[in-house]
Design a protein around this nucleic acid. Sequence first.
DNA 1: AAGCCTATGTCACAATTGTTACATGATCGA
DNA 2: TCGATCATGTAACAATTGTGACATAGGCTT
Lengths: 209, 209
Amino acid sequence: MSEDIDVILARTGLENKLIDEITTIGRLKKVKAGQIVVSPESPGNEMPIVLSGLLKVLRQDPNGQEVFLYYLEGGETCAMSITCCIEGKKSSFKVLAEEDSTIWMIPMGDMDKWITKYPSFRRFVFSSYQMRFDELLTTIDSVVFHKMDERLYKYLLDTKQATGSFEIHKTHEQIANELSTSRVVISRLLKQLEKEDKIEQGRNKIEIL
Amino acid sequence: MSEDIDVILARTGLENKLIDEITTIGRLKKVKAGQIVVSPESPGNEMPIVLSGLLKVLRQDPNGQEVFLYYLEGGETCAMSITCCIEGKKSSFKVLAEEDSTIWMIPMGDMDKWITKYPSFRRFVFSSYQMRFDELLTTIDSVVFHKMDERLYKYLLDTKQATGSFEIHKTHEQIANELSTSRVVISRLLKQLEKEDKIEQGRNKIEIL
DNA sequence: AAGCCTATGTCACAATTGTTACATGATCGA
DNA sequence: TCGATCATGTAACAATTGTGACATAGGCTT
C-alpha cells in the first residue's frame, strides 16, 4: 500500500523529499461510504489528502439543514481544513465519504515547516485554496443566478464527473437534501429533465445522457 | 503619510522588519468611492491592503449580474487576489471602493519570499483565507437557507457594521443589484421592515434602529 | 414657477418554489 | 405469497419572488 501512496502523491506535483516525509509522518485512514471524515464537533488537527475514493464537502446550517459544496477527488486536499486547523477554529462544514475511500492524514504540526521548506508544498496549498475558492464562487453563482432546474442539472453533471460514471445511485430525497430543497421539487424537475431527454430514471438510479 | 501606513500595518500583527520591507517596496493607491480596484479584466499582480476607507467585493455573472460578497475594512486584504495572482488566473470577482479609500499595493513577486521568511506573514495570509472562506460560507448560508427579507436585513446590518454608521445612503435600486433581485422586491421588503420598526426610511437614506 | 429627472409606492399578475396529502409500484423479509 | 417499507408520481394549493405598468413626490435646473 505504501507504494500506492507514493504514486498518488507524486501526481500532486510535490517534490520527492517531501513525499518521503509525508509518507513517514502521516497515517492511513480508511472510511466507508457515508462515514464522516470531518465534522464541526471533531476538532481535527490533521490535513487530509484523498488517495482513493471520493469525499464530499457540505455546509451545515445550525438547524441541521445542509448544502452540497463540492467533491474532493484523489490527490486533492481540503483547503478549509488547513486554515481551520491553523486558526484552531471550529469548522463550519462537514466532510464525508461519498464512496469507500482511503485518506492520508498529515498532522498539522508539520505544516508550517513544510511551507517554509518546500516550494512545491506552497504551490500545492495555494493551488488548493484557489480551487476551493473557485468552487465556492461557482456554488454561489448557481444558487444566486440560476433556478433550481439548472442547479439540479449542474449537480448531476458534477456527480457524473466526480464518480466517473453516467449512472448516479441516489434517491430523490438524498438529492433534495444536498440541494437543500424538498423531495417533491426534485421529482418534478427530474421528470422534466427526462422529458427533455437529458436523463433516464430508474429506481435508485439516474442515468445521464 | 508614511507613518500612518506603519501604524495601520502594525495593527495587522506583522513584525516590524516586514513592515519596513512592505513600506519600502509597496506603493500607495487612492481611489474614489465607486471606482474599481480589481476587475476580471485587470490582471492585477499586486496584493492590496486597505489602509483607510472601505472596499467591497462582488461576484460577477457572465451576463453582467452581480452579488455582494463582503466588505474589506482597514488592515484587511483580499485573499482571493493572492491566489489569483499566484496562480495567474483571471479573477472571477470585482473589488470596488464603497467609500474614498487608500490602499497599499504590494507586488506579488515578494510574496513567496515573505512567506518563507516571516511567520507573521504566514499567519496574516492564512488568517485572511480563513476570514474570507467564512464570509463566503456565510453568504451561501444566507442565500440558501434564508429568504430575501432576512438576506436584506443582514445586508443592512453588515453595511452598518462596515461603515460604522446607522444611516445607509443607497437607493433601493442599488441594494437590489447587490442582492441580485429587483427594485420592487426591495421596496416591498423595506416597507415591511419599516412596519416592524427595524428601520426608518427617507429619500436615499435608510436608518437602522 | 415650470419642467425634468430620479426615487419610491403600489397594484396586478406570472413564475417558481414549498408543502401536504395521497396513489402507485418496487423490493425485501418473514 | 403477504405485508411492510421505501421510492417515486402526481395533484392541489400556499408562499415567495419576479415583472411590467403606472402614480406620486422630492429635488434640481432653467
